[in-house]
């Protein structure tokens, strides 16, 4: 038979979900890049999380579960709005990468690290990445999800996740260099 969550657990579940509010909002901000949409997205995520709380398996990663709901909600909303993220042409990317590396203004990753890159620069650089790369890099390096968790949340194969992370990270570094060069 099945076991339903008891009322005492309900309060604990709610409190646990609320602990992740800031990080959910931070993720929503990187996805939507706009405060009003981010706020809506977080709220809708919580409505769904509470509505489908019996689907959550106690003892598993609640943050990953919530993040998956948030990403799904956003993906559906983008699709409904006819703004489906288009896979970026990989040849064009490789060309862009080569050009950036050829420029004399380029700094090594270590130099960027030593310059104590500001979070605000990082957020701005992340926001410049095409959606699919920003999402993959954010989930891996900021939210620290496994490839499998990201693949599930984004509904793409693990190989695609890895290649998006790889490219996304390199594009991010290029973007930071550009910011520095123009600063």
């Amino acid at each position: 038979m099945f076991r339903r969550r008891q009322p005492a657990d309900a309060d604990a579940f709610g409190a646990e979900v609320l602990r992740y509010l800031e990080s959910l909002y931070a993720t929503a901000m990187r996805l939507t890049r706009n405060r009003a949409d981010a706020e809506d997205l977080v709220q809708d995520t919580l409505v769904k999380a509470f509505r489908f709380s019996d689907k959550f398996e106690p003892g598993t990663n609640l943050r990953a579960w919530l993040s998956t709901i948030l990403h799904n909600t956003w993906r559906n909303r983008v699709r409904d709005a006819g703004r489906e993220a288009v896979e970026v042409d990989s040849t064009r990317l490789e060309e862009a990468e080569t050009t950036a590396e050829g420029s004399s203004a380029s700094e090594t990753p270590e130099q960027l690290l030593l310059r104590n890159t500001l979070d605000v620069d990082l957020r701005a650089a992340l926001d410049e990445l095409p959606d699919v790369f920003r999402q993959a890099v954010w989930m891996r390096d900021v939210e620290e999800f496994s490839y499998a968790e990201i693949a599930k949340a984004l509904d793409v194969p693990i190989g695609t996740v890895m290649s998006r992370i790889s490219r996304g990270r390199r594009m991010l570094l290029d973007q930071l260099r550009k910011t520095r060069a123009t600063a």
């Binding site: 706020e39 990753p109 690290l113 990082l122 990270r169 390199r170 930071l176």
Partner: peptide, 27 residues
Amino acid sequence: GNEQGARRLLRQASPELLNETLPPGLR
């Protein structure tokens, strides 16, 4: 090298990146 550099930067900054100030009323 670039990939590892970006990874280090992000992981170093992740606590701050995940700590966005919530808009009034959302909590």
